[in-house]
Each structure stands twice: as C-alpha cells, then as structure tokens.
C-alpha cells in the first residue's frame, strides 16, 4: 500500500513535469510578455492527486514538480513562479474541494485563478516593478478557460477510472 502510493506520487510528478513542458508550446508569451508565466496545465495533476490521494500527497507531488521543473529548466527564477503559482492553486483548490456544492469545474477554475495571482505575485517580486499587475485581468480571464479545461480533463480521468481500484493488490 505504501509502495503503491509512493509509486503513484512518482508517476504523477512525471506526468506533471511533462505537462509543464507541454505548456511551453502555447504561445502565451505573445499576449503576456512576462517570462516564466504559464497556463497552469500541470494543475490537472494537482486536482487528481487532491481527490485521489488527499492534500498531503498532492502537496508532495507539487513540491517535487516545482523543484525538478526548475532544475530541468536550469532557471531558479522559474522556481518562484511555479512555487507561488502552484501553491496558491493548491491552497485554493484544497479549500474549494471541501465545499459540497462545487464540481471539479468550479474547483479547477478557482485553482487556475489562484495560479494566475500567484504567478503575478512572483513577477512583481522578481521584476521589482508593478508593470505585471496590468496583466492580471487578462490572465484571470484566461484562467476561466484553463480552469474549465483542467476540470474537463480531470472529470474525464475520474470517469474513466471509476471502475479501476488504484490501490488494490
């Protein structure tokens, strides 16, 4: 059981890293010229881990993803962006997932919005200028779409896995 969980964490981290990498291909930089800002597709993994394994493991996966991602990118500035973005999303989603009325979509959208706020905060800190603030409204609007996408993907995922017992055997 413990080994299984650990393996699952490792796999999820790998998937999250792959998603982070995939994000580089979205031309977000065209609309928002701040290096380091990402859509937050890796939040799919956070959503999944949160529901499947709970806040603790989800937290570990997130931390591992941020650290390894920064190491792979060779860019410690990116660490601050992914940490602040990732953990803001994580905190908000943990809170929202406890509200009975919300579906995966609501939780994901809240997470995506928090991800945007966190990254803008990182941009403010690293650039030492308030200029990034001006992109927050755009980024929040974009996060409605990324959040919905994250919600959709994770809903499909859970639907597909509904008959699979992950932790058995």
């Amino acid at each position: 059981m413990r080994t299984k969980k650990l393996t699952a964490c490792g796999l999820l981290t790998a998937v999250a890293l792959a998603l982070s990498y995939l994000e580089n291909f979205f031309p977000l930089a065209l609309a928002i010229p701040i290096p380091g800002i990402k859509l937050g597709l890796a939040n799919i993994v956070t959503v999944f881990a949160l529901y499947a394994m709970g806040a603790g493991p989800a937290f570990l996966v997130l931390a591992a993803r941020c650290l390894l991602g920064a190491v792979f990118a060779g860019n410690m500035n990116a660490l601050l962006f992914s940490l602040l973005g990732g953990f803001s999303a994580m905190l908000v989603m943990t809170a929202l997932s406890r509200l009975r009325g919300l579906s995966l979509y609501g939780v994901s959208i809240g997470g995506a919005a928090a991800h945007s706020c966190g990254q803008i905060a990182a941009a403010l800190l690293t650039l030492g200028s308030t200029a990034p603030m001006y992109y927050l409204p755009v980024l929040l609007a974009v996060s409605l779409f990324t959040g919905s996408l994250t919600g959709l993907v994770s809903a499909c995922l859970f639907r597909g896995l509904v008959h699979v017992d992950l932790w058995k055997g």
Binding site: L84, S88, L91, V92, A114, C117, G118, I120, A121, L124, T130, M133, L136
Partner: peptide, 9 residues
C-alpha cells in the same frame, strides 16, 4: 491568503 496574494500587489 488568496485575498492577500491578490491585494498585496
């Protein structure tokens, strides 16, 4: 905390 991230800016 979320409010803070949004408003601290």
């Amino acid at each position: 905390m979320l409010l803070l991230t949004a408003c601290a800016a």
